[in-house]
Amino acid sequence: MNAFRLAGDMTHLLSIILLLHKIRAMKSCAGISLRTQELYVIVFVTRYVDLSMKYYSFYNSIMKIVFLGTSISIVWYMRYHKVVKQTYNKDVDTFRHIFLILPCFVLALLINRAFTVIEVLWTFSLYLEAVAILPQLVLLQRSRNIDNLTGNYVFLLGAYRAFYLLNWIYRFFIENHQVRWIPWLSGLLQTAIYADFFYYYIKSWKNREKLKLPA
């Protein structure tokens, strides 16, 4: 495993720790999109169905279990925890899951590397992950006050995929990996979706101002 891949996984893990900290310590999920969190559960469940079938490494298995467990518990807190659920911005988090899930599923059926259950689900999870942040970005745009934790959470999520892009470049040139258009292009799209957010995040950080996205 190269340094970029590790950095990507660690920023991903850190983003989840940050969100769980907000939920557990501050008892708040204000500014967090439940739609996006539910999409992540679907992403992880469909991608990690191979967990029980194929063993890659101890690291790999542990990380998969952590991502599955944390994403499910975040959704649980936002839906059912009696204090946390009251901080959820239900009225502004209106993006419909199905508009993302259905096209991604159809695309995975049409464009995949092999027409098998595992491969189609894996491809679907990549397509869905690429766009899963959209409800969260819409929610941020509609929020007047974005607290630091939420801003940092989204920034780390974006940084995670940017590190993966570097990881793929490294694997291609240094480790002689094959060309893999499906994960590369969906990963590139996923990172590109954050471009606008990155711009305003860095600008607010440089000017020491509170983060605010233009509507």
Binding site: R5, D9, D50, Y56, M63, W122, Y164, N176, H177
Partner: peptide, 10 residues
Amino acid sequence: PSKADMHDEL
């Protein structure tokens, strides 16, 4: 020249 599959990623 291909080695491991992308499925080893998270």
